[in-house]
């Protein structure tokens, strides 16, 4: 190696001039293509930081193991009977926990200034939000799949087979699309990603426990039972259970979808407005 070679760390001005000279402005891409590009960005983030999936999958798997083997016998008579009862609920919990991260990652973007760049581009304005939802859906599917696979490994067998499991997964993911806008609003209102995480879990954690995910509400004191029965998370868990058992509960499924649509109808416009004015 000759020592005469100059160190070329840095910009090459001639090449920069060349690079500036060679572009004509391409036609503006359509809304769908722009949203898909942001979806690609979301997936790249999952690819670069797979640990973030660990965060959201380890907790539900931990709960799955803990509840099944620690309390399963006491609650349902046997661990396998309890697993049958609780797995669809844990699927719900696992995916809903993941939605909190939609707000966290939105807030992270805001604190980093990259959102300013996106907002200064001539693109369809809701595209970054819808695109990140596409990326998030990959996370939802992964989180849900992990719980189902671990459940099957522990001996859970859905009566409705693969179809039932896929149906339940699809329902939870659709519900999460609606719920994630709530956390997006938090992500736009709060100051730091940690604050979003804390506030998000402060809401979703008790709501998940005060549902029928872990116990049959029939054993609860009256007022609590009444609350648990109207908790949308209970209704969603019931719907998933029915799908996986091969006895679809039309009312629960419809109610879940209506709640998801209502959440989106309320919080999506708030999100886009906040995003525009930040």
């Amino acid at each position: 190696m000759s020592t005469a070679t100059p160190v070329t760390a840095g910009a090459d001005t001639a090449a920069v001039r060349q690079a500036i000279a060679t572009t004509a402005r391409p036609p503006r891409p359509g809304p769908l293509s722009t949203a898909l590009t942001f979806g690609w960005r979301g997936m790249l983030k999952v690819k670069h930081v797979p640990e973030q999936l660990l965060d959201v999958t380890v907790t539900p798997v931990m709960f799955l193991l803990m509840f099944t083997y620690l309390f399963g016998g006491a609650i349902a008579g046997s661990t396998s009977a309890y697993l049958d009862y609780t797995l669809p609920g844990l699927l719900v919990m696992s995916v809903l926990f993941t939605t909190v991260y939609s707000g966290v990652s939105l807030n992270t973007d805001l604190t980093k200034g990259v959102v300013d760049r996106f907002r200064s581009l001539p693109i369809w304005r809701p595209a970054p939000l819808l695109g990140s939802l596409l990326g998030d859906s990959v996370r939802y599917v992964i989180a849900g799949t992990v719980i189902i696979v671990v459940g099957v490994a522990l001996g859970y067998r859905p009566d409705a087979g693969v179809t039932g499991a896929l149906g339940a997964l699809a329902l939870v993911v659709v519900f999460s699309f609606g719920l994630s806008w709530v956390f997006s609003v938090l992500g736009l209102l709060l100051r730091s990603p940690n604050a979003v995480m804390n506030a998000g879990f402060m809401g979703i954690f008790p709501l998940t426990f005060l549902s029928n995910v872990f116990v049959d509400p029939a054993t609860l004191p009256g007022p609590l039972e009444a609350f648990v029965n109207v908790n949308p998370i209970s209704i969603l868990a019931t719907a998933c259970r029915s799908l996986m058992d091969g006895t679809p509960d039309g009312e629960a499924i419809t109610t879940s979808l209506v709640v998801a649509a209502a959440l989106a109808a309320i919080f999506l416009p708030i999100t886009t407005r906040l995003y525009r004015s930040r």
Binding site: R28, P29, W40, R117, P122
Partner: peptide, 9 residues
């Protein structure tokens, strides 16, 4: 990412 957002193939 920016190339795609600006309409490059």
């Amino acid at each position: 990412l920016l190339g795609r957002l600006l309409g490059l193939s």
